[in-house]
């Protein structure tokens, strides 16, 4: 692989007042034109990871234990808030799950998009407004000239998400972070939004980090996948590797819990139990309290940092599953 556009190494942080990391030793690399999907269930740390990368976590509430970011050849620490703020909205942009709450209800959408342009490009109001109009057109909003002067409440959920995308992409960012951008939308609208993001990505060559809980979305758009559980990446690899050669018991459990649209009816497999709260995490593998294959060592010692090659890594003492069976037999 050529030099990645964005590389993150060993990102760890915790909230003040807690003695356990909410995200632990997270590393990944993202190339131009690639999509990295971070997939996991609620509370796995996928959204706070996005916020950390964007410098949006309040500095008095988190303690970073480590984390080196390399963005287009420049390297900086994740705690370097000033550095990140100068790129935020410009070279790195983010869209959120709730288009309803992430737009300001008191301002016209044209002004909200123009604000992002004016902030980072030293250009006049006219030019910024022209750019806003161009962006609305690009994200497929009908009658953009009128929409420019409308307020968020006058738009439907899908349209609001398009406005969010227009705003995020107004400054041609190199990296787009999308946090569950389609979760609040209906499936037919979700399909439109995913197509739009893919289209814009091909046009601009940006790298996309997509945070989602939906394995269907992952299969459709990912280049690489990081499966997260309780703040740790348990499996990381290309989309082929994850779907054709899943090795971590959690990845397999998650996949077999998803009801399928095809094939014979079968009883759904589950992941037993629920995620322990952050204070009750086992010191070893955090999945060990729910893993049907857990051995005593699992709860005591963290799995050696990801085994496997650089293009497919699994954090499990016994992965792949069949090895586990043999060892324990």
């Amino acid at each position: 692989m050529t030099t990645p556009l964005l590389a993150v190494e060993d990102l760890s942080f915790r909230f003040r007042g807690h003695d356990q990391d909410v995200v632990q030793n997270l590393s990944f690399a993202l190339g131009r034109n690639e999509t990295l999907c971070i997939v996991g269930e609620s509370g796995c740390g996928k959204s706070v990871t996005a916020l950390a990368l964007m410098g949006l976590l309040p500095s008095d509430a988190v303690r970073f234990g480590g984390g080196r970011v390399t963005f287009d050849g420049d390297s900086y620490g994740i705690e370097d808030a000033g550095r990140i703020a100068s790129m935020r909205g410009d070279r790195m942009a983010m869209i959120f799950q709730e288009p309803m709450t992430s737009l300001n209800p008191a301002f016209r959408i044209g002004d909200q998009i123009a604000e992002a342009v004016e902030r980072h490009r030293r250009c006049g109001t006219e030019a910024a407004r022209a750019r806003a109009l161009e962006m609305l057109r690009r994200v497929g909003i009908p009658a953009p000239e009128q929409r420019l002067d409308e307020y968020p409440h006058q738009l439907s959920g899908g349209m609001r998400q398009r406005v969010m995308i227009a705003m995020a992409l107004a400054n041609d960012p190199e990296v787009l972070i999308a946090d569950e951008p389609t979760t609040a939308l209906d499936v037919t609208v979700q399909a439109q939004i995913l197509d739009l993001i893919a289209e814009l990505q091909t046009e601009t060559g940006m790298g996309t980090i997509m945070i989602t809980h939906d394995l269907g979305v992952v299969a459709e758009i990912a280049t690489n996948v990081a499966v997260m559980y309780a703040g740790q990446v348990v499996e990381y690899g290309s989309v082929q590797a994850i779907f054709d050669d899943p090795q971590h018991p959690y990845t397999i459990g998650l996949m077999s819990s998803v009801p399928s649209l095809t094939g014979p009816h079968r009883r759904l497999s589950t992941v037993p139990g629920t995620v322990p709260s952050i204070g009750q995490m086992p010191p070893g593998c955090r999945f060990s309290s729910r893993c049907p294959f857990a051995a005593p060592i699992c709860a005591e010692r963290p799995p050696l940092a990801p085994i496997g090659g650089a293009d497919h890594q699994v954090a499990c003492h016994f992965a792949p599953l069949e090895t586990m069976q043999e060892r324990r037999a």
Partner: peptide, 26 residues
Amino acid sequence: GTPPAHERKPQAAARFALYEAAIDRL
């Protein structure tokens, strides 16, 4: 209609079977 069922790669299929058997035992 929905397409025919997706066939998993043999190694993956074997692991899913192991997982399901373990869950059934539980």
